[in-house]
Design a protein around this nucleic acid. Structure first.
Length: 456
RNA sequence: GUGGCCAUAGUUUAACGGUAAAACAUCGGGUUGUGGUCCCGAUGUCGAGGGUUCAACUCCCUCUGGCCACCCCA
């Protein structure tokens, strides 16, 4: 691909507004989209609809129910769950004080809201497991890049009250199915970061390793900070020195407790059994603080010369067995995952299933003169209600304009109703491909149209 | 948040230290009851601000925005 193509701006490089006029009104500056935000226009939405429909259908089939929660939540919901050491909360949250002096935040992810909703709506009285899915915008104040926005959208699924590793597996299965059915090549990365008990032990060992024999001084600055705040993330660093050090670090699997080990093994067994390819990635830790046990991430497979580090993750999730309890609910083992819609849509466009064209068998109704227009509007409703794909341009007067429109819409037939036809109680049926047209009895128009469509 | 590259009509792209061009798209006409082809015409652009210069779209700075890498993540 030529260089200039990549570097071309998609958005907002000029000012389509009438600057001078706005300036006179003192409004010159800010009628532009905020950075990192995006308009999703017309045809683009077909791809979105496809992704969301596929995901929702799958979710429903596996017994998940839809839930919608507010985009604005109390700040505290994220501070202590997603985690103060996570970048998402520490640096990227859209938070502010509202008119009542309450600290609020635009949600940077969906999971905490669903946990909150689970507890607040007394869902512990529902038959368990409680499985739910949700779709909507999330907000993170990052520096925008391709596939990275300040408002983006996630499709989120959660299973409450199921400790069995089958639940973890189920989420991966659904994610895998979703992307396969969208014909997107993915890689599934799986790891287990241990429960409250064994992870504590492991972190002690890990920290000790990094502090011994001057290992610490070889770490990059970020990692020195990580060593204090969130040692697990040391495994995630991409600096050459840190990667080298990581190879000597104790692997987490060696420290998993019996329970964690057993569950992890079972997750992997299920994956093997169902022939779902995965990549056991012992460095996968994920950036949210609440994870326990199984974690997984889905990245797009890139062919050719794309650099492997540049892979954006399409989705990720895992188990967070302590979060419900942490929020004040009854101890409830829970797991979930989220996929990023923008990135998924981008993949569908380049490698995914083609959109179905729904412009077959379009019938355009054209009219001339106001009396004919009224009759044509009635005909439009009649044909529409019988399931035909009718289109119109009743605001237009000239037949030329209407035929142009019919052509642009890719109409198969155009029905023409003018004064002449009104007088004769007929209507003209024009085949748009051949240009042949035939006058038919107005009463028979519907059967004639249906006959011509079915002949195809 | 850090570093690098970039910014010309709605879109894709030209050219030039002497104030801009093409294609496609849009609108109008050729054809006031006939589209898709064809012909003619019109609309519309140097992201913003400052500096250098007789003169800046062109050179310099700042901002804004985009892309890339890092960071992080969906």
């Amino acid at each position: 691909m030529p260089r200039s193509k990549n570097q071309k701006n998609n958005n907002q490089r000029r000012d389509p507004f009438h600057k001078e006029e706005l300036k006179q009104k003192g409004l010159s500056e800010k009628f532009v989209r905020l950075r990192g935000m995006k308009d999703i226009i017309f045809e683009e939405n077909k791809y979105w609809d496809l992704a969301i429909k596929k995901a929702s259908d799958l979710a429903e089939i596996y017994g998940f129910k839809k839930i919608q929660t507010p985009i604005l939540e109390p700040l505290e919901l994220y501070r202590k769950s997603t985690g103060e050491t996570s970048d998402i909360v520490a640096k990227e949250m859209y938070s502010f004080v509202d008119k009542n002096g309450e600290k609020v935040a635009l949600r940077p992810e969906i999971t905490p809201s669903l946990v909150r909703a689970y507890i607040e709506n007394g869902m512990l009285n529902l038959p368990h497991p409680v499985k739910m899915y949700s779709f909507g915008p999330i907000f993170r104040h990052e520096k925008p890049q391709a596939g990275r926005y300040r408002q983006s959208h996630q499709f989120d699924m959660e299973i409450f009250g199921e400790a069995s590793p089958v639940a973890d597996f189920l989420l991966m299965l659904i994610a895998y199915n979703l992307f396969s059915e969208l014909q997107i090549d993915i890689e599934l990365q799986v790891n287990n970061i241990g429960c409250k008990v064994c992870r504590g032990e492991y972190i002690k060992k890990l920290t000790a390793y990094y502090k011994e024999r001057g290992n610490r001084s070889r770490l990059c600055n970020d990692c020195k900070r990580r060593l204090e705040k969130n040692p697990l993330r040391l495994l995630d660093c991409k600096e050459a020195n840190c990667i080298a050090l990581k190879d000597g670090a104790p692997p987490i699997v060696d420290f998993l407790c019996e329970d964690c080990k057993k569950k992890f093994t079972r997750v992997l067994e299920y994956l093997d059994e169902m022939n779902i390819p995965y990549n056991l990635n012992l460095s996968l830790v994920r950036g949210l603080d609440y994870y326990t046990g199984t974690v997984f991430e889905i990245t797009a497979k890139e062919e050719g010369d794309k650099n492997p580090n540049g892979q954006l993750s399409l989705g990720g999730g895992g188990r967070y067995d302590t979060l419900v309890e942490f929020f004040g609910g009854r101890p409830t083992p829970t797991c979930g995952f989220a996929i990023g819609i923008e990135r998924t849509v981008a993949k569908i466009k380049t490698a995914g299933v083609p959109l179905e064209k729904d412009d077959k068998n379009i019938i355009f109704i054209a009219q001339l003169g106001d009396a004919a227009r009224r009759k044509a509007m009635g005909l439009f409703e009649e044909l529409r209600k019988s399931g035909l794909k009718v289109k119109q341009a009743f605001t237009r007067d000239s037949l030329k304009d209407q035929l142009e429109e019919a052509n642009a819409l890719g109409a198969k037939l155009t029905l023409i109703l003018g004064q002449k036809e009104m007088n004769d109680k007929t209507i003209m049926v024009r085949d748009m491909e051949s240009g042949n047209q035939e006058v038919v009895d107005y009463k028979k128009v519907k059967t004639e149209v249906e006959k011509r469509i079915n002949n195809n």
